[in-house]
Amino acid sequence: RLRTTITPEQLEILYQKYLLDSNPTRKMLDHIAHEVGLKKRVVQVWFQNTRARERK
């Protein structure tokens, strides 16, 4: 499986959303995924990875 490439514009939106809520609901994940044009699962994993990186 190929990795999904996230553009700088998408990253900017994801980080803005992360600052508002680091643990979004399913509904919010759907909305964010639609807004940035990525699959919900990709957005979900991005949030998981970002939370894990923050803990280190």
Rank of each mutant, 00 (worst) to 15 (best):
Y18Q: 02
Q10P: 02
R3H: 14
N49S: 10
L20M: 12
R26N: 15
T4S: 08
R41P: 08
H31K: 08
F47W: 09
K27Y: 07
K27N: 07
Q48K: 12
I32A: 01
E54T: 05
A52G: 10
S22Y: 03
H31T: 14
L14F: 00
L14I: 00
V42Y: 11
F47N: 01
L29W: 06
T4W: 04
V42D: 14
S22G: 10
Y15M: 10
T4A: 08
N49Q: 08
F47K: 01
T5P: 13
R41W: 12
V42M: 10
R3Y: 11
R26S: 15
L2R: 06
Q16V: 15
A52K: 12
L11E: 11
R55M: 15
R51A: 13
E54M: 08
R55I: 13
L14N: 00
F47A: 00
E12Q: 10
I6S: 02
Y15E: 14
K27V: 11
E9Y: 06
L38E: 01
R51K: 13
Y15R: 12
R51F: 07
A52L: 06
H31I: 11
V36A: 09
T25W: 00
R3A: 15
D21C: 04
T4M: 12
A52V: 05
L14H: 01
R26L: 14
N23S: 09
Q16C: 12
R51N: 15
V36D: 01
R26P: 15
E12N: 10
A52S: 11
E12W: 02
K17T: 03
P24L: 02
P24S: 02
R41C: 14
R41E: 15
Q48D: 15
T50H: 09
G37W: 00
I32N: 00
H31E: 14
F47T: 00
A33P: 02
T5Y: 06
R3L: 13
M28I: 03
T7L: 07
I13N: 06
K17G: 03
P8I: 15
E9S: 06
L2P: 07
F47M: 04
L38H: 02
D30W: 04
E12R: 08
I32K: 01
Q10N: 05
R26M: 14
A52C: 07
R3E: 15
E35K: 05
E35I: 10
L2T: 14
R41H: 12
L11N: 14
I13D: 08
Q44Y: 09
W46F: 04
L38N: 00
P8E: 07
T4V: 09
I32M: 04
K40H: 10
H31V: 13
L29A: 03
Q16R: 08
K39C: 13
H31F: 10
L20I: 10
L11G: 11
P24Q: 05
D30V: 07
I6W: 07
E9W: 04
F47D: 01
T5W: 08
L2H: 11
E12V: 05
L14D: 03
F47E: 02
K39V: 11
Q16D: 07
Q10K: 04
T4E: 15
I13M: 07
G37E: 10
F47I: 00
K27C: 05
V42T: 12
D21T: 04
V45G: 07
Q48G: 08
V36K: 00
V43L: 04
T7S: 08
K39L: 06
I6E: 04
L20F: 09
T5R: 04
R3D: 15
L14S: 02
E35F: 03
L38I: 02
E12T: 12
I6P: 08
T50L: 08
K40P: 14
D21K: 00
I13S: 08
L29C: 10
K27D: 14
P8K: 05
T50Y: 10
K56S: 14
H34G: 12
A33E: 02
V45A: 05
R1S: 13
H31C: 12
Y15T: 11
Q16A: 12
Q16H: 06
Q10T: 06
D30Y: 06
K17D: 02
H34T: 12
Y18M: 05
R1Q: 15
Y15S: 13
D30I: 10
E54K: 02
Y18T: 00
K39D: 13
E54S: 04
E12F: 06
A33R: 01
K39S: 13
T4Q: 11
E9A: 09
L11Q: 09
D30E: 06
R41T: 15
Q10Y: 01
V36G: 02
K56L: 03
V45Y: 06
D21W: 02
H34E: 13
K17C: 07
I6L: 12
Y15G: 13
L14E: 01
A33L: 01
L29H: 02
R26E: 15
H34R: 10
Q10M: 05
R55E: 14
T50S: 08
I32S: 02
H34Q: 11
L29P: 01
V42L: 10
T25G: 05
N23Y: 09
L19R: 09
Q44W: 02
L20Y: 04
I6H: 06
L11D: 13
P24D: 03
I13P: 00
L19S: 08
R41I: 15
R53I: 09
L20Q: 13
K39R: 11
R26Y: 10
A33W: 02
L29M: 12
V42C: 11
D21I: 03
F47P: 00
R3M: 15
L2F: 12
Y15W: 12
Q16S: 07
P8A: 15
K17M: 13
R55V: 14
L2D: 15
L20W: 07
N49Y: 07
V36T: 12
I32T: 06
L14V: 00
K56I: 01
R3I: 13
L38Y: 00
R1G: 14
P8Y: 13
V42N: 11
K27T: 12
R26V: 15
D30T: 06
Q48A: 13
T25E: 09
R41V: 12
R51C: 10
R3G: 14
Q10E: 04
R3K: 14
R51W: 09
V36I: 13
Y15A: 08
T50V: 08
D30H: 11
Q44I: 06
T7W: 02
T5V: 08
V45L: 13
S22P: 13
N23K: 05
L19K: 11
Y18V: 03
R53G: 13
K40F: 13
H34W: 09
R51I: 06
L2E: 13
R51M: 12
R1V: 14
T25V: 05
A33D: 01
Q44T: 07
I32W: 09
R51Q: 14
A52Y: 07
I32E: 01
I6G: 03
G37K: 11
E54Q: 04
Y18S: 03
V36W: 04
A52P: 03
S22E: 12
R53W: 04
H34A: 09
P24N: 03
E9H: 07
R1A: 14
E9N: 07
E12P: 01
N49G: 07
H31L: 12
K56N: 10
K56G: 11
T7G: 10
L19A: 10
L2Q: 13
I6M: 12
T50G: 03
T4L: 05
R51E: 08
V43E: 00
Y15D: 12
W46K: 01
Q48T: 11
L38T: 03
R41A: 13
N49C: 04
K40M: 13
Q48E: 15
P8V: 15
A33G: 05
E35M: 04
L14Q: 01
I13A: 10
L14A: 00
E54H: 07
K40W: 14
E35P: 02
E35Q: 11
Q16G: 09
L2N: 14
F47S: 00
R55P: 13
D30S: 09
Y18W: 05
Q48W: 07
Q16T: 11
P24E: 02
V43A: 01
Q10R: 02
Y15Q: 14
L20P: 00
